[in-house]
Design a protein around this nucleic acid. Sequence first.
DNA 1: GTTGAACTGGAACGAACGTACCACTCGGAT
DNA 2: ATCCGAGTGGTACGTTCGTTCCAGTTCAAC
Lengths: 214, 214
Amino acid sequence: MSRPGESAQQRDTPALTERGGVRKAAILEAALRVIGDKGLAGLSMRAIAAEAGLPLGALGYYFKTKDDLILEAFELHTRREADRVLAAFAGVENGDHADDIAEHLTAFIHHGLTEARTSLVAEYEFLIESTRRPDLARVSRAWRQALQIQVSHVASRLGSDDPETDSEIILSVIAGLEIDHLATPLDPSTTQAIRTALRRTITRLGLRGNAARL
Amino acid sequence: MSRPGESAQQRDTPALTERGGVRKAAILEAALRVIGDKGLAGLSMRAIAAEAGLPLGALGYYFKTKDDLILEAFELHTRREADRVLAAFAGVENGDHADDIAEHLTAFIHHGLTEARTSLVAEYEFLIESTRRPDLARVSRAWRQALQIQVSHVASRLGSDDPETDSEIILSVIAGLEIDHLATPLDPSTTQAIRTALRRTITRLGLRGNAARL
DNA sequence: GTTGAACTGGAACGAACGTACCACTCGGAT
DNA sequence: ATCCGAGTGGTACGTTCGTTCCAGTTCAAC
């Protein structure tokens, strides 16, 4: 772990000590926060350093370039988000009615549009930037594919007769609801509209929970 | 039209001659192109000037600040896109089967992901930036609301028993399919998956064209 | 033909940017 | 005790940025 020349990600960055790893992680966290509320356009090495409470020089030590930093921040985000999505869809399978399923998804979206708003905005910043950067596009594709596989398994267990298509529809509806409501402050009636849309989607796709399968 | 002090949008910009209007429009077009393929992060006054084939000084003459230019570019985009969407959904109503309707929407999305890709990317750049800029958010909201009204009318005419919810679902699915496939090159099998998802969505929502209503 | 406003385009400003550099400190291994 | 690479942080370079300025040109109105 401390052999010279060994590196976590770059050919010529030195090996990291525990303390070094903590600092590097803090930089990535700071970057995600800055991207979320200033955008990639407002992301500067100085802004990240200030957000992390570190000197500018530290960034150059842990990341070769700004682009490398952005890539690693995206990877961190997808890793973190994968757990959250998995948890959300695990809850989905415990519902008895279509309404229960819809409720889990509503809560998921609601969380993203309120407490985790910064993180959600950052996610879409990355997605759009993926259209221009092949390295980010690879992460996007892997992330999206992992999601689709998980959700199609869930759909299958919920009685879908075409799990692949249903997972594509569900993921699209979720993404669409998210971006369509990002520019608007989230009031209760909007949340209700989201819930209604999800209920109808789930119902019409014929997805049902445990009770129906017993 | 040539009274002194009169302005199309700013307090202290002079009135525009025809030639001036052409130049201003060219700047906005160039800006949309740059935003689409370099992103808002890569958008600079110099890049716009180069894209438009104009000197840098010209931009300062027609737009007070870069932010003003971005706002007007967004307004131009929504104005232009409104026509395209309207045309797409006008075609939808002429279909006899759910498959015909889905086919129109598939063609719409396909066009956005291929020939009009730059424009589509720019659109999502604007949407994300709307979360940070109230002036852009107003445009987003108005644009989204106009879409929803139009689509819900169409849904109603297609026999929907809940046009508002159905239009929300349809618009979300479309948006979701677009962003999910922006990072991936569009191959024929992807197009087929989009078509399948749209068919299933339309069918399950119980929407039917003219034939069913006769 | 003179006037004045619309328009042109090149040059220049200070500020902020990404990155590189380097003298320095620290801590574990020898 | 010493050594050496990981880690530190302040500084500085060259570039690009948004914006401003202004002497000059065009052209319709009088």
